[in-house]
Design a binder for these strands. Sequence first.
DNA 1: GATGAATGAGATTTCATTCAT
DNA 2: GATGAATGAAATCTCATTCAT
Lengths: 197, 197, 197, 197
Amino acid sequence: MGRKQAIIESATRLFAQKGFAETSTAEIAEDAGVAHGTLFYHFKNKRGIIHEIFSIAGEVYLRSLKKVLCRQATGMAKIEALIRFNENYSRDHIQQIRIFQRFFPDPADDCDPEKMLLDSLKQQVMSLIKESLETGVCDGSIASVDIDKTAAVIHSLIFGITHMNLMESADTPKLTQGAIAFCRRALTPGGQDCQTV
Amino acid sequence: MGRKQAIIESATRLFAQKGFAETSTAEIAEDAGVAHGTLFYHFKNKRGIIHEIFSIAGEVYLRSLKKVLCRQATGMAKIEALIRFNENYSRDHIQQIRIFQRFFPDPADDCDPEKMLLDSLKQQVMSLIKESLETGVCDGSIASVDIDKTAAVIHSLIFGITHMNLMESADTPKLTQGAIAFCRRALTPGGQDCQTV
Amino acid sequence: MGRKQAIIESATRLFAQKGFAETSTAEIAEDAGVAHGTLFYHFKNKRGIIHEIFSIAGEVYLRSLKKVLCRQATGMAKIEALIRFNENYSRDHIQQIRIFQRFFPDPADDCDPEKMLLDSLKQQVMSLIKESLETGVCDGSIASVDIDKTAAVIHSLIFGITHMNLMESADTPKLTQGAIAFCRRALTPGGQDCQTV
Amino acid sequence: MGRKQAIIESATRLFAQKGFAETSTAEIAEDAGVAHGTLFYHFKNKRGIIHEIFSIAGEVYLRSLKKVLCRQATGMAKIEALIRFNENYSRDHIQQIRIFQRFFPDPADDCDPEKMLLDSLKQQVMSLIKESLETGVCDGSIASVDIDKTAAVIHSLIFGITHMNLMESADTPKLTQGAIAFCRRALTPGGQDCQTV
DNA sequence: GATGAATGAGATTTCATTCAT
DNA sequence: GATGAATGAAATCTCATTCAT
């Protein structure tokens, strides 16, 4: 593994655990087993490190999510898969997810490059949720709801669930199952055919 | 207004805007119009400031929430009021809420006093949600669902909504209506008797 | 007990335990159970406190020592009594003695008032030792030695013994007995007339 | 001379002159002609500086003392050489010796690393004194005395003499001659067989 | 006589970044 | 490509002292 990769991995672990401001560049260098100066050979500055982590992690997440969604037959199945995917993904990539969840920029600052990255990521996730809902409405697996509002709600729900899961140490209280049931009740059309798992 | 109160207010504003680590004590002192040393006369250290903000804000939030909930006639009304309350409260107390949402301790650290405060707060909110659901099941306004799981889902949803609202500057707050509609569909006792697993 | 006395006692204990610079005025005030400001009502400043401790402790020490010495019949008995007195006194007044032993001014600074106090104290002790030696030489209990040099040696010995005793926590390894035996051998007019330089 | 060495030398001078607590790290840095931050690159913290001074000075002192002692023919000569060595050494290494003499830790604190260093140094000096006495008893240059007690007395005496010498600016160092005479009288095997109590 | 809130100067320490090698 | 010694700015915190009450 190259030095740059080692730095990224150490930084990811440390930022996830302690936060960006609370992690020093010296600490990252030591953890990565490289000289302190090496950090600034590979990255413009400390922000440059988290920027790279952000953009890589965002891409990987999106690609994986898309792959999962397109495998599903119905719109409702996509929604369920989305919720399940999020649980699995944040279990397997705890550190990246934790960095995302920790990130909380000044909403007034429109120039923050990380904020822009994250905003674009969010918008793409929102689009995927909307597409899933539309698919569901078409194929009859989802009741005819307001697509935009519902997508925003589901997006919030997923974010909230992920956050709760990360706050607990590891016991992961099957929030996912409850969330799927909840969504199915909310979305299933009609005299409704409330299927549970 | 006493100096201590001025410090708390300045710190609240600055922590909300820039984050705890990114705000210096000198900055707080200057904003509050007191000498730098005065901070440490009134608070043991920088953490002491945020601790006080946390405990006060937590109490106020809980008290207000309880007052709103007990005014509602049915369980379903309580759930809706909860969602609406959260929107209003986080609009009127943006700074406190932002500090709460920013807070992301190391889950491994069980001694963090702020974490403990927050955990206790979360548990009390969870209890209120459960009570509301139980009331709803009794009075027939809510379908018979798994109380614990559903409460956890609603809690996550509220957290997520609040977060999304805070991330946008102020323009897109209509998440609340969508969330209420979503929950109503999920919880209203339909023709069906929707059992969760 | 008046507030001033309480301050002196707390300061004595704390200075002895941790040293002058390492003890804060706030700490003294708290230990004494008075307000912080009260210290500066009774004393000009922090130095003023240790100055008072010094002068009182010096006087008490000297008075006690004189009382003990004048009770002895012979010069040799005075020397032995001096050594024994030092052990007893530093056991019973550990804190004062520790403050004295800790004190180590810049030898270049001739204006230090504490240094002057201590110098005067030392000189008076030296005089008492010389008087004892002279008495001993007259009454035949002590060999004819160089009074000045011998007094200086005994003075150093006593200081060293006291220091060693204070450095050990409490086990006090009967240095005193050994010292008395040592001095007796050195001073008793022997078969030999061991004159030196 | 490297920066680290410059820091050590400046710190030694300043600690000796004004004391550890009374010397600021900024002062040391300025005196050494390095940036303030450089201190903390080379040393963990302020204590780290004095720790290094202590351990180097202790080693040098012991090595020099051993070299001097093993050159002496008889036990009594060793004792005399020890006293003389101490005068010379503390004249030539005033600063290091002054730092040692100033050091006065809380005797209750058993973890103080400087205290441990000093305790080990003291014990080694004690061993050398005992060996010298034993040699002297064997070769007949020293009367048969209680080795342990006598060693402790001589150790205290040396400490006391050094202290007195350091307290005076530089003018009155003739303590050494008196001390040698005193010890010779106390230790030379005379007509009498002076038993300790 | 006594208090304690307030201060400002200064202490120690951290840390991102630079740069000569 | 990589290093690590060095830096200086800034951060947190301490503390003797003052002063209005």
